[in-house]
Design a protein around this nucleic acid. Structure first.
Length: 757
DNA sequence: TAATGTAGAGTTTTT
DNA sequence: CTCTACATTA
């Protein structure tokens, strides 16, 4: 087939394998995603019904991109019936279909981590346990890891090593919390993320009918990022693939960096043991990076014991050596990088999006940001609080959740008194207690507090009643209206819109905008569904939204900016120039990892991932001192620097290059130093727009009065455009604007910032 | 019930 | 240092 011509031999062989188990070990930058998409296209072109193909990825984004590519190769019609998604989204879908078999409503709520922790707190209170001993986060992790290993609460209580561990840390009651947690979830009609996989396992284990149904449906299974799967996920795969064994997994053991959340590197290391007939394909040619980068990365990873045999190589240029920067402090580290980016930028004229600054912990971003700001280099930080974790978003989704599933206790607690309705903490506590004692859901008590002997005064009872009536009225709304209309109505009638609209602080403003953004997303959803002839009701939206994350939203307005992110967040990405920062003992590798060989190997893989993000040149830096929680601490260079063979390193600012680490107290002058803040070491860039990126006020819109028909305007996301039409009065003035290359947009001027040019 | 003050904790993160 | 969560006060 001619479409395979663009592949190399190894890639081609991997694509052409059809039947039986296979493992594709894909080195960094070896065209893994390409192989996977080609392979699916190849299967389809060989007459395999896309309806019988299941493809699992780690993010929704990856799934969407892959589906798009396949659809352009085999046609949209064919691609449509493919099942492609994350483990969680695919199996949530199946659980909704089979909900009766597992005793859940089809509209079950998916609790996120915050919901789960809050539920655990409630349980702790119930059991009179000290939240300082039984830290909710820790308890959650214990339960989560049990579930990832398919241990039920009873299994947990019976497992001697777990019991021993909990006894040792004097938290013997975790199994009891686990038990209560599960029964509360069941009563709330909710599952946490791990339950989606756990219950799928139960379904496939206990219901032969479902097992056969899905075994026969998914005759071909493909899994991306297999090195990051956990036991629970692999067990699902084994069950589904048991009949045909047409399972292809793709991954790179050297890039397994999620053990801390349950990923089991043994899944990939021992794949051959599970499937002795598995064919092994190795993708070893790197198309991304220079020889120096590839070889330096190889020298790092070779220090790990546990790994699959492979040799990553490249035909690319030799390139430059990895530059090592040593600075006196974390601030100077930032300055050194900002300086280097500025210098490089003058030299190469590349966009700022060609640069990435990576770090081990989010806390490091501050000093780096500061330096970039001082140098007028635009940047964008990834990570931090995600869109769906924002309070205002959770508030609105909370109303949606209660409307769909009145048993969703966490959602009720979130919205019952926000906006304030005079239903206070004590009242809620009383009702929660009554619900627990009577073994009913909170909603039951809420709708009939007197019947459950909750002692409340008259006004409070009527306040509660009007809240319940509000929710009931929403139920009628979502029956009749489209997802978007329902969302609008709920946002308005709940009082949320008004609440955030009347908050004129910068924070309140951005909250209001976020709510509008969610509603805009809802509108987009409604339109898409209509276009595809699919159901367009609020529940359909909610089924998708619980498993979405920020990374799923495309941010096309973020070009021209340097990227700052954790190394974890950078996995799968590539940049021409990469700066890996904070190469210091106890930071990278992290302090918590240095006592265990396995943890240390994971940190080393993380370092490997960091270096292999670079296409043209990688930089690593370390500081001799660093502020940690307000205290100055002295740092030692990371052992990982020594893991790179000397021949691949360059110390542009050190006089002595033969010896790596002198005692820094002896030769402080060899480190990079920078003039004081007032005295910049270079003239500021002239043609750079002054962008202070992260601040919400960065883009100033013109007052609504100035937006009139015919004027040229600029929008932060859509760029330049012309106002075609204006309707309505301030504050509800609406403009129709034509943006070059984008098309017409209708914008409400109270949220869309338009600048008159 | 709402607002204000204080103690304590603070890898990595998608679902 | 900085944010969050809880407790105390008005």
């Amino acid at each position: 087939m001619e479409f395979l011509e663009s592949l190399n031999e190894a890639q081609k062989k991997a694509v052409e394998h059809i039947n039986g188990p296979a493992i594709i070990i894909a080195g960094a930058g070896s065209g893994k995603t390409r192989v996977l998409t080609f392979k699916i296209a190849y299967l389809i072109k060989n007459g395999i019904d896309p309806f019988n193909i299941l493809s699992l990825t780690f993010t929704n984004k990856a799934a969407r991109e892959m589906k798009q590519r396949i659809s352009s190769s085999v046609g949209e019609q064919q691609a449509k019936s493919l099942w492609m998604g994350t483990f969680h989204s695919v199996f949530a879908k199946i659980l909704r279909i089979e909900h009766q078999k597992i005793g859940f409503p089809s509209n079950f709520t998916i609790y996120d981590t915050d919901d789960s922790k809050s539920l655990i707190k409630t349980i702790l209170k119930d059991m009179n346990l000290d939240a300082k001993v039984y830290k909710p986060g820790l308890v959650y992790n214990r339960i989560s890891s049990a579930k990832n290993n398919l241990l039920s609460a009873n299994d947990y209580a019976k497992n001697s090593s777990i019991v021993a561990e909990d006894t040792r840390s004097s938290k013997p009651l975790i199994y009891e919390i686990y038990k209560k947690y599960q029964s509360k979830l069941l009563r709330a009609g909710a599952m946490d993320f791990d339950d989606l996989l756990f219950r799928t396992n139960e379904l496939l284990r206990d219901d032969p009918q479902s097992l056969h149904k899905y075994q026969n449906k998914f005759k071909y299974i493909l899994v991306d990022e297999f090195q990051d799967t956990n036991f629970s996920q692999f067990t699902i795969l084994k069950r589904l693939a048991a009949l045909f064994e047409n399972i292809t997994v793709v991954g790179d053991d050297a890039q397994s960096i999620y053990a801390f959340r349950g990923a089991n590197i043994q899944n990939i290391l021992n794949f051959k043991k599970t499937y002795p007939d598995a064919e092994i394909f190795r993708l070893e040619q790197n198309y991304r990076s220079t020889k120096n980068i590839v070889n330096a990365a190889n020298s790092v990873i070779s220090k790990n014991k546990e790994q699959l045999k492979k040799t990553v190589w490249t035909q690319n240029d030799e390139g430059e050596k990895i530059r090592v920067f040593r600075t006196n402090s974390d601030q100077e580290e930032g300055m050194a990088i900002a300086n280097e980016i500025f210098r490089l930028n003058n030299e190469t004229h590349l966009d700022f999006e060609s640069y990435a600054i990576l770090y081990r912990t989010n806390a490091q971003s501050r000093a780096l940001e500061e330096a970039l700001r001082k140098s007028d280099i635009p940047y964008r930080i990834y990570g931090g609080l995600s869109f769906y974790q924002r309070k205002e978003i959770k508030d609105l989704l909370g109303y949606f959740r209660v409307t769909l599933n009145p048993n969703d206790e966490e959602a009720i607690k979130r919205v019952i008194n926000f906006p304030v309705r005079g239903i206070g903490k004590t009242t809620i506590d009383k009702m929660v207690l009554a619900a627990t004692e009577n073994e009913v859901g909170l909603w039951e008590v809420l709708t009939d507090p007197v019947n459950y002997n909750v002692k409340l005064n008259g006004p409070t009872i009527s306040k509660i009643k009007s809240f319940a009536d509000l929710i009931k009225s929403f139920r009628i709304v979502i029956e009749k209206d489209t997802a978007y209309d329902s969302g609008q109505k709920i946002a308005a009638s709940s009082g949320l819109l008004k609440e955030y609209y009347s908050d004129k602080s910068a924070e309140g403003l951005s909250r209001y905008e976020n709510i509008q953004e969610l509603l805009a997303g809802l509108k987009e959803f409604s339109e898409d569904q209509k276009e595809q002839g699919l159901a367009d009701k609020l529940p359909d939206f909610m089924n998708e939204v619980a498993l979405l994350s920020d990374q799923d939203s495309s941010d096309d307005d973020e070009k021209e900016k340097v990227t700052l992110m954790t190394i974890h967040a950078a996995k799968g990405l590539e940049f021409p120039y990469v700066f890996v920062t904070g190469l210091e003992e106890n930071l990278f590798p992290s302090q918590l990892s240095i006592n265990s060989r396995a943890d240390l190997e994971e940190e080393r893989r993380l370092f490997y991932v960091a270096i292999t993000r670079a296409e043209k040149r990688a930089h690593i830096s370390y500081a001799l001192t660093r502020f940690k929680w307000g205290n100055l601490i002295y740092c030692e260079p990371s052992r990982f620097i020594e893991d790179i063979e000397e021949e691949f390193l360059d110390y542009p600012y050190l006089e002595t290059q033969t010896k790596k680490f002198q005692d820094f107290t002896l030769k402080p002058k060899q480190t990079l130093t920078f003039p004081s803040k007032t005295n910049k070491p270079y003239s500021p860039p002239r043609n750079l727009k002054k962008l202070s990126n992260t601040s919400p006020q960065a883009f100033e819109g013109s007052p609504a009065e100035e937006i009139i028909t015919g004027v040229e305007v600029e929008h932060q996301r859509f760029g330049k455009g012309k106002v075609l039409q204006v309707e309505g009065q301030i504050p509800n003035k609406k403009a129709t604007v034509f943006f070059q290359g984008i098309g017409q947009k209708q914008l409400l001027l109270k949220f869309a910032k338009l600048k008159v040019l």
